[in-house]
Amino acid sequence: MPWEMDAARFDALVDEALDAIPDELAALVHNVVVLVADEPPPEEADDLLGLYEGVALTERGLNEGGALPDRIFLFRRPLMDYCDSLEQLVEEIRVTVVHEIAHHFGIDDDRLHALGYG
């Protein structure tokens, strides 16, 4: 059954998930912004939970300096629809954050699924 949470509380859960990333890993994330949107873009699946837009570190050349930040999106409505409880939502936000940050490091979906982040 669908349920709701106000945007400020949802954003706070995203902040908590980001704060839980180990410092050693967080220190390696550069020029990335994390954004929350209510819905995925129209060209994406309606049930998409998150999206990484950018160039993975493994794909960057020497001329990447000064580029706009990579972007990680978390999609509020699909995440809310996917989860039946606050506990499940907290966990799914955490998993989605880790999943999208992994794309920043060049880890593909197949590997993430094998690791349980799919």
Rank of each mutant, 00 (worst) to 15 (best):
M1A: 07
M1K: 11
P2T: 14
P2R: 15
P2G: 01
W3R: 05
W3L: 10
E4G: 06
D6C: 07
A7W: 00
A8F: 00
R9T: 15
D11N: 15
D11K: 14
A12G: 09
L13N: 04
E16K: 14
E16M: 08
E16C: 04
A17T: 04
A17E: 03
A17R: 04
A20K: 10
I21T: 10
I21F: 08
P22D: 15
P22M: 02
D23I: 02
D23H: 05
L25H: 14
L25G: 01
A26N: 05
A27K: 08
L28G: 14
L28A: 10
V29E: 04
V32R: 12
V33D: 15
L35H: 14
A37E: 13
D38W: 03
P40F: 11
P40M: 09
P40Y: 06
P41Q: 04
P42F: 06
E43Y: 13
E44W: 13
A45P: 05
D46I: 00
D47V: 00
L48E: 00
L49K: 10
G50D: 05
G50Y: 00
G50F: 00
L51S: 04
Y52K: 09
E53T: 03
E53L: 06
E53G: 01
G54K: 11
V55A: 09
V55H: 08
L57T: 09
L57D: 05
N63I: 06
N63S: 09
N63Q: 07
E64P: 00
E64W: 09
E64A: 07
G65K: 11
G65P: 02
G65V: 09
P69L: 04
P69N: 05
P69G: 03
P69R: 09
R71T: 12
R71D: 03
I72L: 09
L74Y: 11
F75A: 03
F75I: 01
R77P: 00
R77L: 06
P78T: 02
P78F: 07
L79H: 08
M80S: 07
M80P: 03
Y82H: 09
C83H: 09
C83R: 05
C83G: 04
S85T: 14
S85N: 03
L86K: 07
Q88C: 03
L89E: 01
V90R: 15
E91R: 14
E91K: 12
E91C: 06
E92C: 06
T96L: 01
T96E: 03
V97C: 03
V98I: 08
H99Y: 08
E100F: 01
E100H: 06
E100D: 05
A102D: 13
A102I: 00
H103G: 08
H103A: 08
H104V: 05
D108G: 10
D109H: 14
R111M: 12
R111A: 15
L112P: 12
L112F: 00
H113L: 08
A114K: 15
Y117T: 02
Y117D: 03
G118S: 14
G118P: 11
